[in-house]
Computed example of a mutant assay.
Amino acid sequence: MADTTIKVDPAVRDRLMELARERGMTMRDLVAQLAGATPTKEEQRRRYEETKAYVEEHFLGGPYTEEDEKAGEQLWADLEAGRIGEVQ
C-alpha cells in the first residue's frame, strides 16, 4: 500500500498523535479508524431510510409521518429534561 502525506496544522498533528498514543496505536491507524467510522452523507441517508423502513414495518404498521417525528422529538426532549419516569 502506498503512503500519502496529509498536511495539517501542528496543533492538529499533535492532537492526533496524543489520541493515537492514548489508544495504543499509530497515527496512521487512528486516521484510518476515524475515516472508517465516519459515515458519508450517502451512508447516513441510506441508514436513515433503512431505519425508517424498519420502524414502519415493526412498530408503526404504516408510514412514518411528520406527527411521528414530532412525537419522537418531544420524547427525547422529555427524556433529556428528566420528565419521563417522574413520580407525579
Rank of each mutant, 00 (worst) to 15 (best):
M25R: 02
Y64A: 00
H58G: 02
L34Q: 10
A32W: 08
T51G: 05
Y54V: 07
E86K: 11
T65N: 05
M25N: 00
R15H: 13
G61K: 06
R46Q: 11
T26V: 00
A37D: 12
K70Q: 00
P39S: 05
P10I: 13
M27F: 04
R28E: 09
K52C: 02
R21C: 07
G61T: 01
P39A: 05
E57S: 10
K7Y: 14
E67S: 00
K7V: 15
E42W: 08
A81T: 06
T5M: 13
Q74C: 00
Q33S: 14
Q33N: 13
L34Y: 02
E57F: 01
V87T: 08
G72E: 02
A81R: 04
D29P: 09
E43G: 04
Q74E: 05
E43T: 02
G62L: 02
L34S: 03
V55C: 01
L16W: 08
T38H: 15
D3N: 15
G36V: 07
A37Q: 14
A11I: 01
G24V: 03
R46K: 12
E42F: 08
A71F: 10
E66F: 11
H58S: 09
E49R: 12
G82I: 01
E86M: 04
D29N: 08
E73N: 05
T40G: 08
D78Y: 12
A2R: 11
R23Q: 05
L75D: 02
R23N: 05
E49W: 08
G24M: 01
E18S: 03
R23G: 06
K70Y: 03
L60K: 09
G62N: 07
Q74R: 08
G24S: 09
G72A: 03
P10V: 11
E57A: 13
P63W: 06
M25V: 08
R13V: 00
A37E: 15
G62R: 06
T51H: 05
A20C: 04
M17G: 15
I6R: 10
T5K: 15
Y54L: 12
L19A: 15
V31S: 12
K7Q: 15
A32H: 10
A77D: 13
M27I: 12
L30H: 12
D3I: 14
M27E: 12
L30T: 13
G62V: 05
T4H: 11
L16T: 07
M25G: 04
K52F: 04
P63E: 11
A32D: 15
V8R: 12
K70D: 07
R83M: 03
A32L: 14
P63H: 05
L16C: 09
L75E: 03
R47Y: 11
E69L: 10
L60M: 00
P39G: 11
